[in-house]
Simulated scan of single mutants.
Amino acid sequence: MESSLTIDGNKQLFKDALFFDLEHYIYKKPICIGVFGCCVYDEISKELKVTQYMAENKKDAIEILSLAKNYFEEMKMKYNKKYIVTFSGNNDFTVINYLLKAHKTDFLLQGYFGEIDLQKCYEKAEGTCIGLKALEKKFDIDRESELISGSNLAKTFGKIVKDDDYINRMPQEKKDKILLYNQQDVVSLFYIYIDWYNRVNLKTEEITAQQ
C-alpha cells in the first residue's frame, strides 16, 4: 500500500495500528460510552476486523470499560499493536480516561499507544481544518450508514442509562443504524490512512506519532 500515510518513517504502520472511535454521552461531565468501536488490519486474511461494544443499560455502560481495557491490553500484548489512529481523538481519549478513573479501572488509555490524529495530520499537511465527513468526500468514500447527529446519539444513550427497559423498546433498526454509523467511522479511518498520499499534498516535514 504505497500511498499509505508515513508516520515515524514507517509506511507500513497501519499493520501495527488500531483505528478507534467512540460514541458517548456527556452531560456536564462524561456519563458513559454508548458504543466502543475499533478495527485492525488482519495481514493474513487481508481484511479489516471490527470490534464493537454497545451499552444497553447502565450496567453495560460500566462493563464496556472492562471490555475496552481487556481489548487494548490484548491488542498490545498478544498482537503487538503499537499505535492508535483517531479523527479528532482528544475528546474520545478524555471521555474514556475520565470514565476509567471514575470507575477505578486499573488502566488508562492515555500514553498506552502512540497516538495519530488524522485531523491534525491533515491540518499539518494542508494548512486547514476539516471534518471527517468532508474528508470522506475528498477520499471518495461513500458511507453505507446514515449520518446521525451527536446530539441525537447523546439523547439515545442518555435514555439507555436512565431506563433499563428503554433498549427493549428501541427498534432493532435504530440499534443497527447506530452500530453501522460507528463501524463506518472506524473503517473510514483505515481507508483514509492507506490512501493518504493519493489525496493529500504533504507540505510539511515528516509526521510523528504523539506519545
Rank of each mutant, 00 (worst) to 15 (best):
D92V: 01
S45P: 02
A55H: 03
C32I: 01
V95F: 08
N201I: 02
L202A: 08
L180V: 01
K137I: 05
M75Q: 13
K155S: 11
T94D: 14
I116S: 01
V161R: 00
I26M: 03
N198E: 11
Q110M: 12
V161K: 00
I192C: 06
H103D: 08
K138F: 05
H103A: 04
K69Y: 08
S4R: 10
K46P: 12
G131C: 08
D106K: 12
K58Q: 10
R169T: 02
T94R: 14
T208H: 14
H24W: 12
V40R: 04
L118Y: 13
L67C: 12
R143V: 00
R199P: 09
S88P: 11
D142Y: 00
N90E: 10
I44F: 09
H24K: 02
K59W: 14
M77G: 04
L13C: 04
I64V: 13
K11W: 09
K177N: 05
L100H: 10
I130H: 12
L202I: 06
Q184I: 00
K82D: 01
T208D: 01
F139M: 10
L153I: 15
E205T: 11
N152V: 06
D117E: 08
I7H: 04
S88N: 15
D163S: 04
F157Y: 15
K49S: 02
Y193Q: 07
G9C: 14
K138N: 07
P171V: 10
Y79I: 03
K76D: 06
I167L: 12
V85I: 14
E56N: 03
Y122I: 07
Y53K: 00
Q210S: 11
I7C: 03
M1Y: 12
E173P: 02
R169P: 02
Y197F: 15
I207D: 00
A102Y: 14
G34Q: 01
C38Y: 05
A55Q: 04
F19P: 12
E126M: 15
S149F: 06
I167G: 01
D117W: 12
A68F: 14
I167M: 13
G34K: 00
Y181P: 10
Q183P: 02
